[in-house]
Design a protein around this nucleic acid. Structure first.
Lengths: 133, 133
DNA sequence: TTATCTGTTATATTACATATATAACACATA
DNA sequence: TATGTGTTATATATGTAATATAACAGATAA
């Protein structure tokens, strides 16, 4: 896997896992229907507990980004990704508000802030070594 | 004060306080040199503990957004706000990366994402009832 | 059938973060 | 002198994060 954990980070391990899997899907490294490692094997690979992996998988399942089949195991959502819901927009707005405020106080312009958003988005979408559709 | 807390939120109280004070500075509601309530009075106003307020104040002091004088009490930074440091840019990029990835997976375009960033920034900057320079 | 692997559930423990409560301290002010 | 300031210390309660072990039902392959 392409996962790299920072055990010194203040970001919880399960959240780092969630983030990196979502980035994998966003970049196309993980395609709909692609299988993910079992909770035990990924836990062993990363040197963490299987419950931590399980927590991440279930959060992503709850968000609709992953499916957990009794037969296929854990795979990337293949029945259509969830769209831009009202709830998601509100959560996104709230997070952006906090970032925009500190950026503004530090003197970063609206244009620079928006441009950084664009660049980061593009960089996230850009495939890094994986297969692409 | 203009502070409104959501005790049901998963965002810690001290973090909500930090966010709203930063937004107050960004919007101009709080001007450099403006005094903030004492830890005890603000705590009483909000119905929370003074140590929670103190934690928020100290985080903002550490970030350079507030000054704590033995005489003047707690005031908004009047000796120049900290600028866009390399550390801040990196932290901002990391946070944006997480947001951009989920937005992308949900099908939000780069343009929409950037436009939302712009709009939220502008909305944050916009004064809501306070005095402006 | 047996053995193995899957996600899941349960229980327990450790460590840390959050939030509160109470008290005391040095400093400044009216 | 009395009061208010931020600060420090101690204690407690609660929740989260992460780990460890064990067991379970369902699926799979030898």
């Amino acid at each position: 896997m392409f996962i790299e954990l920072d055990l010194q980070s203040e970001t919880p391990i399960y959240a780092q896992l969630v983030d990196q899997i979502v980035e994998g899907i966003a970049s196309g490294t993980l395609q709909p229907g692609d299988p993910l490692p079992s909770v035990r094997s990924l836990a062993e690979d990363l040197g963490i507990n299987l419950h931590t992996v399980n927590k991440s998988y279930n959060l992503l399942k709850q968000e609709g980004f992953l499916q957990i089949h009794r037969k296929k195991g854990v795979i990337v959502q293949s029945d259509g990704m969830p769209g831009v819901t009202e709830a998601f927009e509100e959560k996104l707005r709230q997070q952006l508000r906090s970032l925009a405020a500190t950026a503004a106080v530090r003197g970063m312009s609206e244009e620079t802030f928006a441009q950084m958003s664009s660049l980061v988005y593009r960089d996230t979408i850009t495939n890094r070594g994986g297969k692409q559709s």
